Simulated assay, not measured.
Amino acid sequence: MLSKEKMNRINELSKKSKSTGLSADEAKEQTRLRKEYLETFRQSMKGTIENTRIFDPDGNEVTPKKIQDIQNKKKH
């Protein structure tokens, strides 16, 4: 997860870009922070998906084979 300071900075830059605009350095910083945020989000989402098991109403596991293979690799 991104630090609270970085999240606050992303929000500050976003507000500033909508109101007065950003300097070249601020635009670069915003791009870097957004990229870092997306990488963190994707890693988190990937971890969540790879650790999820899906069951149908009858209690049978219906987790996609691709996810099961990843889960099995992590066990060994």
Rank of each mutant, 00 (worst) to 15 (best):
S17A: 08
I54M: 08
S44T: 09
T52H: 08
N11M: 14
K15L: 15
K73S: 08
D58A: 10
K18Y: 10
K28D: 11
R34M: 11
R42G: 00
A27T: 11
M45V: 11
E12R: 06
D69W: 02
K75W: 02
N60G: 02
T31Y: 12
R34F: 10
L33F: 10
A27L: 13
S3R: 12
E29T: 07
Y37D: 00
K73N: 14
M45C: 06
E26N: 11
L22N: 00
E12K: 11
K74R: 12
S19P: 03
K28H: 09
T63I: 00
N60Y: 03
Y37S: 07
K16Q: 05
K35E: 14
I49D: 02
K65Y: 04
R9W: 02
E39H: 05
P64W: 01
E50Q: 06
E61A: 05
K75Y: 06
A24S: 13
R53Y: 09
Y37C: 03
K35S: 13
F41I: 07
K75T: 05
I70R: 00
D56H: 05
L13N: 02
R9E: 13
L2H: 03
S23G: 03
L2S: 09
T63F: 01
K66D: 09
R42Y: 09
E26H: 04
L38H: 12
T20Y: 06
S3Y: 08
K4V: 12
I49K: 02
R53F: 03
I70Y: 01
I10T: 04
E61G: 03
G59Y: 01
T48H: 15
H76R: 14
I49N: 02
P64Y: 06
A24Q: 14
K73G: 07
E26V: 10
D58I: 01
N11A: 15
R53E: 13
S17D: 07
V62R: 06
S44C: 06
P64Q: 04
I67F: 07
M1C: 12
K18R: 14
R34Y: 14
D25C: 01
Q30H: 14
T40V: 10
P57G: 07
E36D: 11
I49Y: 05
R32D: 10
S44E: 08
Q43M: 11
G59R: 04
S14L: 14
G47L: 05
L13A: 04
K6H: 11
T40W: 08
T40N: 11
K35D: 10
P57I: 08
K46L: 10
A24T: 14
I67H: 02
K18T: 10
P57A: 08
Q30M: 13
D56W: 07
K75C: 02
P57R: 12
I67V: 09
I10D: 04
G21K: 01
K15V: 13
A27Y: 09
E12L: 08
G47V: 01
L13Y: 00
L2I: 15
N11S: 15
Q43Y: 07
Q71R: 04
S3A: 11
T48Q: 15
H76K: 14
K16W: 01
F41L: 11
I54P: 00
D58C: 01
E12M: 04
